[in-house]
């Protein structure tokens, strides 16, 4: 894994790019990698931890195989994104920011997906679903193998 860092010169300004690479590679930022990076760059671990917890695109906990992003921007909010979130919570048992125990799904909220015309919207691993209703959400989750225990 050393090579992942070594692509970059040991300069502070590359820190965020490296953190993004780690996030992509592992789906989250493992603790030992963060410590390794701190040694490689000579940046205190506390600084890196601060960055890793600041950006929403970086995560310190492993993310699920499917990442569900529910839009809670103004348009979706008005078109009751809350019902969508409730439906997901009921079906999968996770709140925004959480991951199912089997590591299959993570739930996040985002502030706008730029698709207000089809609000309320959610995205599962880059696939968009618009004009959602509770029953549609249930169907879609089933496709991904969620809540088959009903």
């Amino acid at each position: 894994m050393r090579t992942l860092f070594e692509k970059y010169p040991k300069e502070k300004r590359y820190t965020l790019s490296i953190l993004q690479d780690l996030q992509k590679q592992y789906g989250y930022i493992p603790k030992d990698k963060l410590i390794e990076l701190s040694q490689y760059m000579g940046i205190p671990l506390s600084r890196l931890y601060s960055m890793a917890t600041f950006y929403k695109a970086l995560s310190l906990k492993p993310k699920g195989k499917y990442i569900i992003k529910v839009c809670d921007g103004t348009a979706c909010h008005i078109r009751s994104s809350k019902t969508i979130l409730d439906e997901i919570e009921n079906t999968l048992g996770i709140k925004p920011g959480e991951t199912t125990d089997d590591g299959k799904f993570s739930l996040e909220t985002v502030n706008c997906l730029g698709s207000c015309a089809i609000a309320p919207v959610m995205v599962i691993n880059n696939k968009y679903y618009g004009k959602l209703t509770s029953s549609m959400v249930r169907e879609i989750l089933k496709e991904y193998g969620g809540a088959d225990d009903e």
Partner: peptide
């Protein structure tokens, strides 16, 4: 901590 200590603490989250 940065200047006198060992940079052990930082602000976390936002």
């Amino acid at each position: 901590c940065q200047e006198l200590g060992a940079s052990a603490i930082s602000t976390v989250n936002r």
